[in-house]
């Protein structure tokens, strides 16, 4: 059992989820509310990670983060370490790769809030920020928690893109999913099985917890 890999997976999932929470709320709400130019294109682009093989996205990210790229160079001059094949690199890839999971359920959640309630909030003297916090977010909460759970569970289970962008550096980029692959390659089926079971348990726990939380979230958000 590779505890280091499991810890890294959890760290990556937690960091990705935390980074995507504000994106989920603000992006989901903007897409639910606004009718603006390019909205359909943005929605389509957000779906891309669902249909493209992780290798394609991984390839582009690797090129974009590489030492010769503007992003890679800028990063290295700023932080003194490269982006590709580091934890920061797989975190960035994971954030991009999880956008559809983080935004879509939240968007559905905000769409379910009647526009009149937002107007009523304004008529009660609530600023748009106050209306978001006190009226919209509590009602869209099940959508947002679903988004966060999917992001968390999906990050833990991600394999291809992490391998492409991060390789399999122990303690840096070798997550459980990659460790399992390594173990299988080494014919260590016992370790692979233990880790696989752990992964199933963690993911199931994350999803179950969210369903519980979502069910207990403020009522009336249907």
């Amino acid at each position: 059992m590779d505890w280091e890999a499991l810890a890294l997976s959890l760290k990556l999932a937690a960091a990705t989820t935390a980074a995507l929470l504000p994106v989920s709320v603000l992006g989901g709400r903007a897409l639910a509310r606004g009718e603006f130019r390019g909205k359909r294109l943005i929605e389509a682009a957000l779906m891309l990670p669902l249909v493209l093989p992780p290798t394609v996205l991984g390839y582009y990210l690797l090129v974009a983060m590489g030492a010769g790229s503007p992003l890679g160079e800028a990063w290295e001059s700023l932080f003194g370490r490269p982006l590709a094949f580091t934890f920061e690199g797989i975190l960035l890839a994971s954030i991009l790769f999880n956008l559809p999971f983080a935004i879509q359920p939240a968007q559905r959640g905000f769409e379910a809030v009647a526009p009149e309630l937002r107007e009523a909030a304004a008529c009660c003297g609530m600023s748009p920020a106050a209306a978001l916090w006190r009226v919209e977010l509590p009602l869209a909460w099940p959508g947002v928690t679903t988004a966060m759970a999917l992001t968390f569970a999906h990050t833990i289970g991600e394999f291809g893109i992490v391998l492409m962008v991060g390789g399999a550096i122990p303690g840096e980029t070798r997550t459980v999913a990659i460790a399992i692959y390594d173990r299988v390659q080494a014919f260590d089926l016992e370790a692979a099985g233990a880790m696989s079971a752990t992964l199933v348990a963690v993911s199931l726990a994350a999803l179950y917890l969210t369903h519980r939380l979502g069910a207990r979230a403020p009522a009336g958000a249907r």
Partner: peptide, 30 residues
């Protein structure tokens, strides 16, 4: 002046009460 800075009392046709708040909290919100 944006709606939230106008001192206006509006009763919507559907009432638009906040479904996650009690009656008292609905009123307190204003």
């Amino acid at each position: 002046v944006p709606a939230h800075r106008r001192r206006v009392g509006m009763v919507f046709q559907s009432y638009a009460l906040f479904p996650h708040m009690s009656a008292a909290r609905n009123v307190a919100a204003a």
